[in-house]
Computed example of a mutant assay.
Amino acid sequence: MDGFISDIAFTASIWALPVLIAITMHEAAHGFVANLCGDPTARLMGRVTLNPFAHIDKFGTIVLPILCIVSGWALAGTPFVFGYAKPVPVAMSRLNNPRRDMMLVAAAGPGVNVLLAVAASALLHTASWFPQWFGAWWEATLVNGVLLNLVLAVFNMIPLPPLDGGRIVTGLLPYELARRYVRLERYGIFIVVGLLFLLPFIGREVGIELNYLMRLIMVGVHYLLQFVLMLTGQI
Rank of each mutant, 00 (worst) to 15 (best):
F197H: 13
M92D: 15
N113H: 04
N35V: 01
R43P: 02
S121W: 03
F134A: 08
I208V: 14
F80P: 01
F59D: 08
I202T: 11
T141E: 07
L216H: 00
A54K: 08
Y175T: 09
T61H: 14
E139C: 14
A34P: 03
L199K: 10
G188E: 07
Y181S: 08
A106F: 04
I8N: 11
T11K: 15
A28K: 06
G83N: 09
L95C: 08
E205L: 14
G38L: 00
M45V: 01
G165I: 06
A108V: 04
A117S: 10
G145S: 15
N96S: 13
N149W: 02
A34E: 00
G188H: 11
V33P: 00
H222F: 00
G111V: 06
M157L: 14
I189M: 08
A42Y: 05
D164Q: 04
P52Q: 12
A9K: 11
A153K: 03
A153D: 03
L184E: 05
L160W: 02
F197M: 10
A42S: 15
A107N: 03
L184W: 08
V105I: 10
I66A: 13
I191T: 15
Q234F: 12
G77Q: 08
P174G: 05
T61N: 10
I208E: 10
G77I: 13
V112N: 05
G111A: 01
T41W: 05
F197S: 09
A76M: 08
L50V: 08
I235E: 10
F155H: 01
W138Q: 08
L104I: 09
A34Y: 00
R179M: 13
L172R: 00
N113Y: 01
F10Q: 13
L196Y: 02
G60F: 11
I189E: 01
A91R: 15
A122V: 03
Y84T: 13
M102T: 08
L177Y: 13
M214D: 10
R179D: 14
T126H: 09
A42R: 07
S13A: 15
H222Q: 13
C68E: 13
